[in-house]
Structure formats: C-alpha cells, structure tokens
Design a protein around this nucleic acid. Structure first.
Lengths: 217, 217
DNA sequence: TGTAATGTTTACCAACCGGTCAAATTATCA
DNA sequence: TGATAATTTGACCGGTTGGTAAACATTACA
C-alpha cells in the first residue's frame, strides 16, 4: 500500500508525528527565510535531514507543506490579540499587548517573517485567513478599543490603525532585523535592542512625544 | 560589434535610454511583487514588452538589473529623511516626516516592497547600502533628535527607535497593503485609509493615547 | 514468525530558469 | 548610398526544480 497521510488506521503513527514535526520545523526555517517561491523542497529536505522523496511522502506537494505550516502557526500568532481583555485597564492592556508582541518578535522571528513574506507578495496562499478569522478577530477587538475611547478611558482614535501601528512597530524588529542591526551597529547597544524598543514603544503609545513633566531633577 | 552597454560612443543612445527605462520599470514591477529569487527574467521581459535575449542585451544578468534598480531607487527613497531639518520646529518636522513617508507608501508602494522583500530575506544584495549610506544618514538625524530631546523640545526618547517606529508604521501601508485592505474591508472606509492613517499617526506620535482635555462638549 | 502496511531510497522526468550564440534586422552617419 | 555599428530574435544549453515510479527496507501486529 502506498497511502501516505491519513492511512487506513486513521490514527497517526509515532513515526508520522515525529517526521511531520521535523518537516514543519524545517519548512518554517526555509519558507520564512526565502518566501514560498524562493524556498526549494530540496532545501527543506536537507534541513529536515531526510531525502526529498521521503519528505514528499508526508506532504505530497510544496503547497501542502506551506498550508500545513500556516495552519499550525497562525493560531499561536494571533494569541496575544485574543488575550486582549475588554475588562482590564485600557492603558495596561495596550501596554501588555505591545510587550507580548515584542516578545513574539524576539522569540519567534521566523513565524513573523513567514507571514510577512506571504503578505508582502500579495498573500496568495492566505487570503481566506486574512479576510476571515483575522478580520473577525480584529473587528472584535477594535470594538473594545472604540468602547474605551467612547468611555473616555483613552484618547479617541481609530482602533484599526492603532492595531496596525502596534503590529508594524513590533514586528519590525523581526521582519527587518538585518536593517535594525545594520543601523544600530554593534557598538550602539545593538544587543539590548528589544529592551530599548519596549521602553520606547510603551512610552510612545502611552504618552507620545509631547514634553512631559520631568518627575525630578 | 556586440558591445552592449557603454559602447564605443560612451554617450548613451536614445534607444538605450528608452529601453533601459522600460526595463527598470518592469523590473520594479516584478521584483517588488516577487522578490529577487521569485522574479524571473522572462516575466520582466514580458512586462517590458521585449524578448528575453533583448533584455539581456541591456543588462547582462538578473543581478545587474536588480543592482541598477536598487541604485536608482534608494536615493529617492531616503529623500524624506534627508529633508529632516535640524533648524525647524521639532514636532512640526516629525509630523511632516510622517506625512511624507505616508505619501511615499501611497504613491510608491512598489519601491517600498522592493526594499521590504530584500531586507526581509536578509538583505543579501543591499547589505553595504544598509551599513554604509543608510546607517550614516540615520546616525546624523538621530543626533538631531537627541539634541532636541536634550534641549527639552520633545520628550526624551531613543531616536533610533523613533525612526524605526516611523518607518514601520508608514511603510506598513505599502508592504502589508493586502492585509490592511482585508482587515478594513471595503465597507470600512477602506479607501480613505491613508487619510485616516495620517490623522492617527500624527496624533499618536505627538500625543500618545493618554486621555487629553476634550476641547469642547 | 510471517505478512501486510508503512516507510525509505535510487533513478528518473518534464518543465522551468538564467544565460549564450549566431544569424538577421535596423539605425547611424560619412 | 553604403558600410559599419547597434539592436533584435529564435534556437539552444546546462543546471535546477517540483514531483513520480518502483524497488527495497522496516515496522506493526495477528
């Protein structure tokens, strides 16, 4: 028999789970660094430490691998936004959302680049996810923010563009990492860049650049 | 004779100028949409309306085309930052820098995506430009911002991360356009998105989200 | 243990890709 | 006008790419 996935037994083998895991890990590495078209199956196979036909036994096509990867990663990628809590203190919620997103950019840059590559090139493989689950989630949270503004808890502002601004500023440190490093240089506190970014962004979103009362001195 | 570019005459033919122009326009279209590796010479030739060998008569390799394109575009892309003026009013300067960058994202999204693709995939072709001219320019302007902060004209903040924040928030509307459209939907004021973004960002950077005195009501 | 299902490999293919070549065509200008 | 240089094209090439076929190896389990 030559049925690859979803064989007769329905239940996935231990080997299947292990190999699919290794493949998706390798696929993340390669897709995130090169985009869909720039990635090659041979490359992924090499990173996964197996032969190309072996890899294609588990995922019949390059597209199937990419789709499986997207499905697997998208959920966790949106977790921080899901945790955005309507009941909490608005400023604290926004602050913690920024912090969480920045931690994701630091700890999961490949996931960030995976989506960035995809969206940048017109999102040919994830259009449905953007217009469906993503839009729905953003709509929901935008409503929360709008309510906060209406209640006078934060300044009146367009909630969608606020979310875009948080996304872009935080993911910048993953997606444009080489540029950030190049500009900061190694002498220029390049290594503390995530802490510096956190300080800067929390302050930016809360206070803006207006001169504030100096607490002391 | 088969000398392609820089022929005996030294002076470029009218035909040369026209064709190179058409090629670079097509190259911008294709490279920005697909990245370097994702773009094919055939594709560029088709968009430019000429045969592949003909195209390769003007640019010997795909790399040469890409390099010529980068050289041509990088300068104008950095213009807004160059115009950043140390003598001006700080808040006004920042506001106008944001506005200009947002206009660039609206009017020249392909240029933005060209660099985004490149940087996202590790900047293999523009590393020198990042570490050289770009870093130098940012260093210079960062010093201006630092001086403003020291003089108490704006809040103390990390000037590098301020620049990163302006870059990321504005370019987001070019680089992640499909995502922005998907989330906003067509009903949701999708068409006025650049005006909305301008209003939001100018306010964000100047005031932050803190509750401000309501002018009336 | 035997056997059927699952997993792996070697060899291969057709399409695509960047690039070349030589011949044919067109522009330039003495 | 004629000859020389510039431009354009179709045919082609070697390497890469996504994917297949079939033989071989291993595992699970009655």
């Amino acid at each position: 028999m030559v049925l690859p996935r979803a064989a007769k037994t329905q239940r996935r083998t231990r080997i299947q789970e292990e190999k699919e895991e290794r493949i998706l890990e390798a696929a993340l590495e390669v897709f995130s660094a090169n985009g869909f078209r720039g990635a090659t199956v041979d490359q992924i196979a090499e990173v996964a430490g197996m032969s190309k036909p072996n890899l294609l036994y588990y995922f019949r096509t390059k597209e199937a691998m990419h789709r499986a990867l997207i499905d697997r990663v998208l959920d966790t990628w949106l977790d921080p936004l899901r945790e955005f809590n309507a009941e909490g203190n608005p400023v604290a919620e926004i602050r913690s959302y920024i912090r969480r997103k920045l931690e994701m950019a630091r700890d999961y840059p490949r996931e960030s680049r995976l989506f960035a590559n995809e969206v940048l090139q017109g999102a040919p493989h994830i259009e449905d996810e953007l217009k469906g689950p993503l839009k729905a989630l953003v709509d929901e949270k935008a409503e929360v923010i709008r309510a906060w503004a209406k209640a006078g808890k934060i300044a009146k502002c367009d909630p969608y563009h606020l979310i875009f601004a948080i996304w872009s500023t935080t993911q910048h440190y993953a997606d444009f990492d080489v540029q950030v490093r190049a500009v900061l240089g190694q002498g220029n506190a390049g290594e503390g860049r995530f802490e510096d970014a956190a300080r800067f962004l929390e302050r930016l979103f809360v206070d803006g650049l207006q001169v504030s009362e100096q607490p002391a001195a």
